[in-house]
């Protein structure tokens, strides 16, 4: 079975993606991760104005039988939170790289050092 991978994103081994867009970057979890979890029923995220730190937990994603911590691929201030996920957690399953995004963070370019490329991430999941 093959999973979608977005070549515009960089990745953490723990299956989070980050996609830069101007001064900010969006963060979410990968197609592979959502499939492993099964039906997502709840997402716990920080609030706007909170800071997240590279490789540190920033939230939790829950399916029926499992709870997984979310790790931040980059550091920075949260400038937007995808509040749709609170009522429609299924977006994480349906569109993990699109409407299922979680946070928008003001980041530093240098933060991308050491993150997996799309190819490296694909190799990891295969």
């Amino acid at each position: 079975m093959s999973f979608d991978i977005d070549t515009d994103c960089r990745y953490l081994e723990s299956h989070e993606w980050v996609r830069p867009d101007g001064d900010t970057a969006r963060i979410g979890i990968t197609d592979f991760a959502q499939d492993e979890l099964g039906d997502v029923v709840f997402v716990e995220l920080p609030s706007e104005g909170d800071d997240v730190t590279r490789d540190a937990e920033f939230g939790v994603v829950e399916s029926i039988k499992a709870v997984s911590d979310l790790y931040a691929p980059v550091s920075g201030e949260v400038v937007a939170v995808n509040e749709r996920l609170f009522d429609e957690p299924e977006l994480v399953n349906d569109d993990p790289f699109g409407d299922g995004w979680m946070l928008e963070v003001a980041y530093e370019e240098s933060d991308f050092d050491g993150l997996l490329t799309a190819k490296e991430y694909r190799d990891q999941t295969e």
């Binding site: 029923v41 709840f42 829950e62 399916s63 029926i64 039988k65 499992a66 709870v67």
Partner: peptide, 12 residues
């Protein structure tokens, strides 16, 4: 909402 409970979330 059983993910709150000990059999899934253990020490948390």
């Amino acid at each position: 909402l059983q993910t709150r409970e000990q059999h899934i979330r253990r020490e948390r």
